[in-house]
């Protein structure tokens, strides 16, 4: 099913996260990831929600009915910046430490912990970059992994002039 990224500006009030997630659940929309944090505007938070739905119109309209939801933007992946962060601990007990470090270097991953038997990387980037990294290292033995939800912002609209021509 299609994934859509929604950037939702909400009032920073108690229970808003519960309202949003409860609404998506009861209307039958599957949440792939959800990240929430403060914005530049005081009293507002931004939720970046990746939902799986055949079409987005109903999701947006239903979310809009929540009194604390101020603005909803659907982000076009081609015109927005999407980032995730991943912490991943890879086994080195079977050797392969230098291979793993090499892959890490290619992905500009940061080593955040090294032990006798494992290395932990911090990787940031697009969802597909993180997925690629995971594929390359999984053969060495992934002991544990934690991933943030996706956060995203739209890019400045440079296409406007081109469109007018």
């Amino acid at each position: 099913m299609m994934q859509h990224t929604l950037s939702v500006l909400v009032e920073d009030k108690a229970g808003v996260l519960a309202r949003v997630s409860s609404l998506l659940a009861r209307r039958g929309f599957n949440i792939h990831s959800l990240a929430v944090g403060p914005t530049a505007e005081i009293g507002m938070s931004r939720m970046t929600i990746v939902v799986e739905a055949p079409e987005l119109e109903q999701v947006k309209k239903q979310l809009h009915k929540l009194v604390n939801v101020v603005k909803i933007t659907e982000l076009d992946p081609n015109r927005s910046v999407e980032r995730e962060i991943m912490l991943i601990r890879i086994s080195t007990s079977g050797g392969g430490r230098s291979d793993v470090l090499e892959i890490g270097a290619i992905f500009k991953a940061t080593v955040v912990d090294v032990g006798q038997n494992s290395i932990t990387f911090q990787v940031t980037g697009t969802p597909s970059k993180l997925a690629d990294f995971f594929e390359l290292v999984r053969g060495y033995g992934v002991i544990d992994m934690a991933k943030s939800g996706r956060i995203a912002l739209s890019r400045e609209n440079k296409a406007r002039k081109l469109k007018a021509v």
């Binding site: 108690a14 519960a18 409860s22 609404l23």
Partner: peptide, 14 residues
Amino acid sequence: TTGITMPCTKHNYF
């Protein structure tokens, strides 16, 4: 109460 009634009210307040 606010949790229980969240899906059956237009809005609620605590």
